[in-house]
Computed example of a mutant assay.
Amino acid sequence: MQVTHISTIVKPGFTDFTNAFEKLAGRITKSDVTNIVTDPEGTRRHIETLQGYQDLIIFDIQDHGSLFNLIGEKRFAKQYLIGNPLIAFSMTRHDIRAALYAPLRVLVYTDGQNRTTIEYDKPSDLFGQFGIPQITEVGLGLDQKVEKLVEKAVEDSVSVKQQ
């Protein structure tokens, strides 16, 4: 399997970009899906209300930058687990192994020159490895969704800075 790794340096600073990114994407917690067994349709409707830009939802944010405090350094790095349970199920219903890559991981960090960098593996490569057209098609759609979310977060963080 060959995976295309996307790495993009953006103009906005780390805080401006991550604030915009987090504002655009929806958020979900475990409590949002606790009724899925007793009320699957109600849970589906609730998940739909949580969807953010491009129907994407943040599941979790890991502050990897804070780990650098262990060696006395200040660094900025956040790893986002991002996706959508409904989109994930549209793949895992065809092959449960697609759950290995859902939700997706997006890393935002500053490098040694204080530039903000966004990195992730191309979803269509991750999901395309299964050779199932329905899953590959969703992966291709996720390529576009993640790309558009990053672009919109850049745009929004630049416009906020200019105000």
Rank of each mutant, 00 (worst) to 15 (best):
M1C: 09
T4M: 02
I6V: 15
K11Y: 08
G13V: 01
G13R: 03
F21Y: 13
F21Q: 02
E22V: 11
E22R: 09
E22P: 01
K23V: 07
L24K: 03
R27Y: 01
K30H: 08
K30Y: 07
S31G: 10
S31I: 09
S31K: 14
V33F: 03
T34N: 10
N35Y: 06
N35F: 07
I36M: 12
V37R: 11
V37W: 10
D39L: 09
G42L: 06
T43C: 08
R44K: 14
I47T: 08
Y53H: 15
L56Q: 06
F59M: 09
F59W: 08
D60G: 08
D60A: 15
I61L: 08
Q62R: 12
L67P: 00
N69Q: 15
N69I: 08
E73F: 10
A77K: 14
Y80K: 01
G83L: 09
P85I: 08
S90R: 11
T92C: 05
D95M: 07
I96D: 07
A98G: 05
A99G: 15
L100P: 01
A102H: 11
P103F: 05
L104R: 01
Y109N: 10
Y109A: 12
D111P: 09
D111F: 02
D111E: 09
Q113K: 14
R115H: 15
R115F: 05
T117G: 05
I118S: 09
E119M: 11
D125Q: 06
D125P: 10
F127I: 13
F127N: 00
G128C: 13
G128A: 14
G128V: 14
T136I: 10
K145Q: 12
V146P: 00
K148H: 10
L149H: 00
E151N: 14
S157K: 02
S157F: 00
S159C: 01
